[in-house]
Each structure stands twice: as structure tokens, then as C-alpha cells.
Write a protein that binds this DNA or RNA. Structure first.
Length: 267
DNA sequence: ACACTAACCTGCAAGC
DNA sequence: TGCTTGCAGGTTAGTG
């Protein structure tokens, strides 16, 4: 899935064509994704006007005119297509008919995504989330969350209680830019290194948003065009490539997931 | 409270 | 050509 920049790009796209639209029809092709859809899912949506689309971490929050909120998480492979010309694809799970006659389709081959409706106040998937990296967040906050942890820093950066929005790609890239080994213990990261990490994470996420999200095989912008720039990654999926320092990009497994790094310049 | 694993799914690429 | 294996952007539930 999309990490924070990609979700933000999707938010922008959805915002442009959904804001002010009334939902005239909902077609569910199955009864669950990662979790079962809520009771009366269609009835709760039909007739509602979409007021705004916000983002919290990697979750899209679609504000409805009755105060309820449609929550959408894209999982690893979820995709919204707006103004869709067809909706009979194998993994087209949810179709929305809008009052301008357009249809929006949620497609998700792996079905790790989530669609739910809640009151806008509290949701179990949102309640434990840590700080937004592009809002109020600083090195003291990061340092305080790392100081009692014995897990590797790479693992900690993926923990959404430490900071939200950072996924496997940007965790690797941020550690590389910060010249910090992904295997360092979180509790051994200094306050100065936290300052560097906060700065680099912000730079990377901001640049990726500016680039319009990124593009991977499962990800497409809401208009169907690809939007990621894999070639701009310095280490992610670059095993064997020469690093600028003369070292070689290596791959290791942490928490069951690939980490890409340069052992020559990341200490 | 933290650390670690397994689990949820399908699709694709590489290797035999 | 097929089969098998491993891997993929995320997150939670369960165990110790």
C-alpha cells in the first residue's frame, strides 16, 4: 500500500471529485474486506452528501453531512478509481454511484483494506495512533518514544504508535539519509540522531507528496495514471546497487520484512 | 508495556 | 510449458 504520501495524493484526488457530491447508490460485491462491512452499510451511505475528505495516518476520513465518517484504509493493494468506465473487475468490491452520474470503484486484490462507518469521535483503529510527522512532532517526542525500546530502530519507525505514515519504503530511505543503521537499538539513538531522523522523514514525505505520491505496481492515482517514482529511491529495492559512498546496498529481514541499507555509510 | 510471530489475501517473478 | 517458492507498500490478534 501506499504510505503517507500516496494516501495524501489519493486524498487530494478524492477531494476534488467527491466534495459536495451526494451518494445515490452503493453496490457491495462482498460482505467484508479485512473486516466485515458494518450493518446497513449501504443505507448509511445512500442520500448522504460528502462534505470533506481528511487523512489521519494512512486512513482516509470521508466526512458525511449527517456527522458520520466513512473510514477507508487501502491496505497493501487498495485503489479508488473515480469516473470509472467499468466496475466488473475481479477485485472491484465496492461501487459508489454519485449524483453527477459518475461511479467510483474500490478495487483491492489482497483485501487488506478497510471500509467502515463511525461517529467521527472515536474508532478503535485510530485511537492508539501516534503523531503526524508533518504536524506537531519533534525530536524530543521521538526520543521519548524510543528511549525505553529495545527493538531495532527500523522496527520502531514502522510502529504507528511511534509516528504514523512511515511505511517500509520511507523507513529505509529515512534511515539511509540519516546515516543510521536500521539494526541500531531504538534506546541507543541519541537526541541529535532523533533530530536528524525527524528532519529527514519530513523531507522525504514532503518531497514524495510533491511528486504526486509515488508509483508502485499496485498503486495508481485516482484517475488511473501511475504516480510513483521508484527510480528516485536510493536504497529501497536496490539490493546490489552501488551506494554513493562506494558501498553496496544490502538487504536484510527485520520483523519479516525487507530492509535495504548500506552498511558502509549507515552506522 | 513490550517483543515477536502468524495471519489475513492475491498476483507476480524467478527458479527448477 | 508448468509447478513451486518467495516476496510484495499494512496492521492486528495472539503468545510469551
Amino acid at each position: 500500500m501506499p504510505e503517507l504520501p500516496e494516501v495524501e495524493t489519493v486524498r487530494t484526488g478524492l477531494s476534488r471529485s467527491w466534495k459536495g457530491r451526494r451518494i445515490d447508490g452503493v453496490d457491495l460485491r462482498r460482505n467484508s474486506l479485512r473486516f466485515p462491512f458494518p450493518e446497513n452499510f449501504e443505507e448509511q451511505l445512500v442520500g448522504r452528501v460528502i462534505v470533506d475528505i481528511r487523512r489521519r495516518a494512512k486512513y482516509l476520513l470521508i466526512d458525511l453531512d449527517d456527522g458520520n465518517v466513512l473510514l477507508s484504509h487501502l491496505g497493501m493493494s487498495g485503489k479508488w478509481t473515480l469516473d470509472a468506465s467499468e466496475c466488473e473487475g475481479k477485485h472491484d468490491h465496492v461501487v459508489l454511484l454519485l449524483d453527477d452520474g459518475s461511479i467510483s470503484v474500490y478495487n483491492d486484490p489482497r483485501r487488506f483494506g478497510v471500509l467502515d462507518i463511525f461517529d467521527g469521535i472515536s474508532h478503535k483503529l485510530l485511537d492508539h495512533l501516534g503523531p503526524e510527522p508533518l504536524e506537531l512532532w519533534d525530536c524530543e517526542d521521538l526520543f521519548s518514544k524510543l528511549k525505553n525500546r529495545k527493538s531495532a530502530i527500523k522496527i520502531a519507525l514502522l510502529d504507528q504508535k511511534v509516528v504514523v505514515g512511515v511505511g517500509n519504503i520511507y523507513a529505509c530511505e529515512a534511515l539511509y539519509k540519516s546515516k543510521i543503521s536500521p539494526q541500531r537499538l531504538s534506546c541507543n539513538i541519541s537526541i541529535d540522531e532523533c533530530r536528524t531522523l525527524v528532519r529527514e522523514i519530513r523531507i522525504i514525505l514532503t518531497e514524495a507528496i510533491k511528486a504526486g505520491g509515488s508509483t508502485l505496481k499496485d498503486f495508481a492515482n485516482v484517475d488511473g495514471t501511475l504516480g510513483y517514482f521508484p527510480h528516485q529511491f536510493k536504497v529501497y529495492d536496490k539490493e546490489g546497487n552501488m551506494c554513493g559512498c562506494g558501498g553496496i546496498v544490502e538487504r536484510l529481514i527485520q520483523g519479516g520484512r525487507s530492509t535495504f541499507w548500506c552498511s558502509s555509510c549507515q552506522k
